[in-house]
């Protein structure tokens, strides 16, 4: 690890000032599970590491206001698992968060970090996308809200500009019933990076949203507005047709975790399974 300075601002204003002062030589730190690896591998060589964990505005970790549930940037994945509101309203996010690393990792890694790292395989991304999350971005120059679907640009790249940071992720609280499920393929049953990941949300009104990770340069989502996927009476063949159409947006590559062909095939297999599980849960809801 190269030498660097460390600051723990108490307010967002202080954090913005540090960000502006150090520009490209600043690095934000929340959970650290990606950042510290980067520092050690020297792929990150900041002059200044800005630890956000003491920023007053980022508390409380999880809050509800109106029809939005807000999860701040320093909220660890374990904190998400421990929140009953999220269990009740966003169970697929719980499932997704539970697959990120080990218990030790989830005690440190943050939801926001998982998103800002912008790995195409980020496990929480499909769940957040499918639930319609938006990202709160702030800088010394003000704040803006970005739909998560607009937030990702490519591997490791987001719309964040220099001087900006993410303060929180908002999730819309749905009034209607829905069924949701998260699924993934990995090389082993224990902790692993996803070969593909998927989240499905079926709304009682008939709309089905499917979001995917690790099958393109960035996580993405698609929706079936026709109601066919959500229709319990529809034939499997007809559903497969719709799924195949939706999945044309995927552009998986071959890497050490799996080949393009396997990923393409698993997209359909896992989409069917996630859809089935979502429908069952909708019925049970």
């Amino acid at each position: 690890m190269q030498p660097f300075a460390y600051a723990r601002p108490a307010t967002l204003a202080d954090a913005f000032a540090l960000l502006d002062e150090h520009g490209p030589d600043a690095c934000l730190l929340a959970g650290g599970t990606d950042v510290v690896v980067g520092l050690r591998n020297r792929t990150l060589r900041p002059e200044m590491v800005i630890d956000l964990k003491q920023v007053a505005e980022l508390q409380p970790a999880i809050s509800e206001e109106g029809s939005w549930l807000t999860i701040t940037a320093t909220t660890a994945l374990a904190g998400i698992d421990e929140d009953q509101r999220i269990h009740a309203r966003f169970p697929a996010l719980i499932e997704a968060a539970a697959t990120v690393g080990s218990a030790q990792i989830r005690n440190r890694a943050t939801l926001t970090g998982n998103i800002c790292h912008a790995s195409p395989a980020a496990d929480t991304a499909p769940a957040l996308l499918a639930y319609g999350a938006r990202v709160n971005v702030a800088s010394a120059r003000g704040t803006r809200r970005v739909d998560l679907d607009e937030f990702f640009v490519g591997p490791g790249k987001t719309v964040l500009q220099r001087g900006e940071l993410v303060t929180a992720i908002d999730l819309p609280i749905a009034a209607e019933r829905r069924g949701a499920a998260f699924a993934r393929i990995t090389r082993r049953r224990g902790v692993d990076l996803a070969t593909i990941s998927i989240c499905c949300v079926v709304e009682s009104a008939g709309r089905t949203v499917l979001a995917y990770g690790a099958v393109g340069p960035r996580p993405f989502m698609v929706a079936d507005e026709s109601g066919l996927l959500a229709d319990p009476a529809a034939r499997d063949g007809a559903k497969d047709e719709v799924l195949r159409q939706l999945l044309t947006k995927a552009s998986p590559i071959s890497d050490v975790r799996g080949s393009r062909e396997y990923r393409e095939a698993m997209l359909l297999v896992m989409s069917r399974r996630a859809l089935r599980a979502s429908l069952e849960r909708l019925r049970a809801a």
Partner: peptide, 28 residues
């Protein structure tokens, strides 16, 4: 079930390290 060292065309180990060289865990 899972272990194999993968090499690229120039003989570099593609899955070098614990992240991509997988060994069994309790769940396996």
């Amino acid at each position: 079930l899972m272990e194999h060292i993968l090499l690229d065309d120039s003989g570099r180990i593609r899955n070098l390290g614990a992240l991509d060289y997988r060994i069994p865990t309790t769940k396996d």
